[in-house]
Amino acid sequence: MGPLTSKKDDWLRRWGRNAEPLITWAVMGLGMLVRAMSASMARRFAWLIGDFIHHVVGLRRELVCRNISLTFPEKSDEDVRRIATAVYRNIATTFIDVLRFPLIRKVEDVEALVDIDVSPFWRGTDNGRTGAVVISGHYGNWELMATAFGMKAKPMTIIVKELSNKALDRAMNHFRTMNGNGVVYQAQAPREGMRLLNEGGVLAILADQSDPGASAYGEFLGRRATMFHGAAFFALRAKVPLFVGMCRHIDGGRYRVEMQEIETSDLKFCNEDIQTLSIRYTNVLEEYIYRWPEEWFWLHNRWKNA
């Protein structure tokens, strides 16, 4: 059985590598299609995709419903299913919106999509003169939030996970950077992130997923989970302010981005205070998820490494 299994695994890996160009071309073709649609039509199309993935494909459907049920034990099965449906629709909408990024060419274009108040950032950074860490989660349209912030406030460098499909990875990073933002891969983030902050740049981090390399644990949405300390490490080490930005859907296919500075003046760069700051911004993420659960990426198993 050993050699047969090995040959099968090798075939699957080769098939996956050979399929990468096809997947990339399909995504790029989809992008051309949705950019030819009106905004309302693209949104309805995204909902159809979300419903198909949820109800027909069933991608991680049991995991999503279990995560929601454990976080909200007071909700009925019907409520859980309703939230799950909205989750898949929102994820599909986020993806379609990213493919429509080439339609965002000037500030007025992003203002037509996003309500964002960047005044907390200006106040906390001496009108942008200092560096800053901005954290968020896989919530609402986090990709559009980064574009809106970069165009309305100051370009940011986003820490991203490199995709195994290199062509698709390059395409996604092109969308992310076409309006002035930059990206840095996780492996280079410790060095490049500190350099950026010391030079007055803005470093963006998504701080809501499981960290397999974490050595600290706490609670996230009422369950034991790994604690993401990276954002706290950067902010306290570089002595720069830290902000949480959360993007959520509002009426008419628009989004609202709300930003708040997290208190750091009472903290110094040490393990205990890194833990304290991590809890502070994690609490903000939790507040949004509890209030608008349909906006979060429940497909990720946040508690798998606990």
Rank of each mutant, 00 (worst) to 15 (best):
P293V: 03
S278E: 00
D9C: 05
M246T: 09
R81H: 13
A148H: 04
S265K: 12
Y139H: 03
H300E: 05
V34W: 00
K8V: 15
V118E: 02
A36H: 13
V114T: 06
G201L: 07
F234D: 02
D9G: 10
N271P: 06
R170D: 14
F72R: 05
I116M: 13
L70S: 13
E263H: 12
M1E: 12
L196S: 08
T276W: 00
I262Q: 02
R191E: 12
H55F: 14
K75L: 12
P120M: 03
R302F: 02
Q260G: 12
G222E: 06
K75H: 11
R35P: 01
K268P: 00
F269N: 14
S40I: 10
V134H: 04
Q260M: 15
K304R: 14
T276K: 14
P102M: 04
R223M: 09
T130P: 00
V114E: 01
Y88C: 07
R248V: 08
L4C: 06
W122K: 09
Q188A: 15
R254E: 10
V284P: 01
A26G: 15
L33C: 13
I250P: 06
G31M: 08
W142N: 06
Y139R: 05
A204K: 09
Y217I: 08
G140T: 02
M145G: 11
A146P: 03
K268C: 14
G180Q: 10
K166L: 15
H174S: 15
N173T: 10
R61M: 01
M41I: 14
R129P: 00
K8N: 11
D208Q: 04
D117I: 04
N271C: 00
H300D: 05
A112E: 13
M246D: 05
Y255T: 08
A148T: 08
M194W: 05
D169F: 13
C247V: 07
G128R: 01
D77N: 12
G131Y: 03
D211K: 08
R82M: 12
L48W: 13
G137K: 05
D79E: 14
W142P: 02
R224H: 03
M172W: 12
K154E: 03
Q260I: 11
L163A: 14
P212A: 08
L59V: 07
K7H: 12
A39P: 00
Y290P: 00
A238L: 07
N198Q: 15
G131A: 02
